[in-house]
Amino acid sequence: MKNGSDHGTKNVLVEFLLRLGDDRLILGHRLSEWCGHAPILEEDIALANIALDLLGQASAILHLAGDVEGKNRTEDDLAYFREATQFKNLQLVEQPNGDFAFTIARLFFFSTFNNLLCDVLQKSSYETLAGIAAKGFKESSYHLRHSKEWMLRLGGGTEESHRRMQNAVNELWRFTGEMLVFDEVETELQRLNTIPDLSTIASQWSGAAAAVLTEATIIIPFRQKDSGQAGNHAVSGSRHGFHSEYLGHLLAEMQILARSYPDAKW
């Protein structure tokens, strides 16, 4: 990749980096909301550690996106001065935290995906991205281990924890489909050999998630894409800026100070 000399290439690369960066920024933000409110002190620290990893990844990736874009936008410009419809994160990560089971199930679903994705991307020919992915791979391996262990404990703990975990998985399932779909952006980058082939991620994810859910004695929901069951359809469109209403509120809070004083340095 010759760092985006070609206009179209540059655009798809920026697009891809925003997807990566926004996922991590928004999930990191959500996890940071737990700090001071977790079920046990040790978990305040664990969730904050994971949030810090994700925010660190987000910061590096958005910085790179700004560089590639070449319009003098910093990572902060991208985080604080874009509208909800310009964010490319998954709806999965913008959902409110819910209870601890919901937070853990979402973290598990995302970390499984993140770990597979980083593993592929660390072999990317685009070295800066490969470096970020290599770090992300190590970090997400721990996120995965942590969330998996809690999946097992909540699934197999008490009746109440089992019920909550099953509910969380049922609720979250419709958000997982679009995570595994890659479109023309990724295809184009693969064609240009900027990133390796991502096509095995979906099936690997399904296998890995199913294995843990089964061990946690949680029933795996059906893919509801064409089921026609009202209110349970798989969501789509996040990667193009279509979101749930929650994102706007999250951004209103996150961006308030930076936007109120756009010329100030902090």
């Binding site: 409110h37 977790a38 079920p39 046990i40 978990e43 601890f100 909540l154 703990g157 924890s161 909550r164």
Partner: peptide
């Protein structure tokens, strides 16, 4: 809110 988690 965390009681059920610790219990589990």
């Amino acid at each position: 809110d965390g009681a059920w988690v610790r219990e589990a």
